[in-house]
Every structure is written in C-alpha cells, then in structure tokens.
Amino acid sequence: MALACDLVYAADDAKLLAPFTSLGLHPGMAATYLLPSRGGINLARELLLTGRTIRGEEAAREGLINRSYAREELLEKTLEIAGSVAANAPIATRLTKIALKSAHNDLEEALKWESLAQPVTMTSKDMLEGLTAHRERRVPKFTGS
C-alpha cells in the first residue's frame, strides 16, 4: 500500500518486503507496476523474485522510499512534512499531484500539461496570497480559491 502513496517514510530499522513468490504467490496489489516505478526494475526484480527483506535505510538509499528516520523521530518528522505539504496552496498542490501521476511520456507532453495547469493557478487568489506573503516575508494563508 505504501508504494501507492505520494511520499513514503519509514524507520531506519523498518523491515520492508514483498514475499509473494517465497509464499508461492504471484505478486498482487499492483506490486509488479508500483515497485519498479518506485524503486527501479533491478530492485523490483530482486525483491519480488527473492522475497528478500530490506531495512528502511536501504529502502531510502535505493529510492524505494523518500527517507528513513530513527524510529523515535519518525512520527515527528512525518507530521512535520505532512504539515508542510498541507500548508501549500491546495489548487497548485492538486494539479502538481496530477502532473506527477500522469508520468508524461516526453518533454513536450509535460510542457503541454503545464501550459494548461499553470494559468489555472495564475488566476487564483492563492497565487496572489503566495506572492504577497513572500514579498511581506510571512507565511501565506491559502484558501483554495
């Protein structure tokens, strides 16, 4: 399930595994799609074909997760990151999530999407608030409009 999330964090000593084949099962839950897209085909092959367990530190190093933290810091750090994301302009964040999920096939496709999405944010009250707050050196108060 974590593979389907936008951001993934784990404790340094967390155990991550996809033991399907070692249990006699074909991978499920879109693991054959999500694991290669997140951690690369080589890591996906190794984890899916062997059922090997990796720790959070290695998962972060391999790009399978965003970062790992000491277990006692994990909740605080992830709540801080979640707060940072939640504090951003909702419309811009939503459109950025769509763009990242779209996995554009080439530069031209990405530029086309951006040429459609950016004007939406440029006409928002949130953009004006963001620019004003930046100029006034204060935290913006976004409303999603």
Rank of each mutant, 00 (worst) to 15 (best):
E73I: 01
A89M: 11
K97S: 10
Q118E: 12
T93W: 05
T121D: 01
L79I: 14
E62K: 12
G83P: 06
N88P: 00
S68A: 14
T93D: 09
I91S: 02
G63L: 05
E108F: 03
L95G: 05
R94C: 03
K112L: 12
K101M: 08
E73K: 13
Y69C: 08
S68E: 07
A110M: 13
S84T: 15
L100F: 01
E109W: 10
L111I: 12
L75S: 06
K101T: 15
A60D: 11
N88V: 02
A87P: 03
H104W: 06
K112E: 12
T78N: 01
S115V: 02
L79M: 15
E109V: 15
S102N: 15
T96P: 00
I98M: 08
A117Q: 07
A89L: 04
P119E: 03
L79P: 04
E72F: 02
K101G: 11
P119L: 03
S84D: 14
A92N: 06
W113V: 13
P90F: 06
S84A: 15
D106Q: 11
Y69R: 11
A87N: 09
A82M: 09
E62A: 13
N66C: 04
V85I: 13
A103C: 08
E62L: 09
S102Q: 14
L79E: 13
E114F: 07
E114I: 11
A117T: 13
N105E: 12
A103M: 08
L64V: 07
G83T: 12
A99Q: 08
P119V: 06
E62S: 11
H104F: 10
E62C: 06
T96A: 13
M122F: 04
W113C: 11
R71T: 08
M122W: 03
R71Y: 00
M122V: 02
H104S: 15
M122G: 04
T96H: 04
S68G: 10
G83W: 07
W113I: 12
E80C: 05
G83C: 10
K101I: 07
Q118W: 04
E73P: 01
A70M: 07
A60E: 10
S68C: 11
A70I: 09
A92C: 05
K112R: 14
V85T: 01
D106N: 15
K101S: 14
E76H: 06
A99W: 05
V120E: 07
W113N: 12
A92E: 07
M122Q: 11
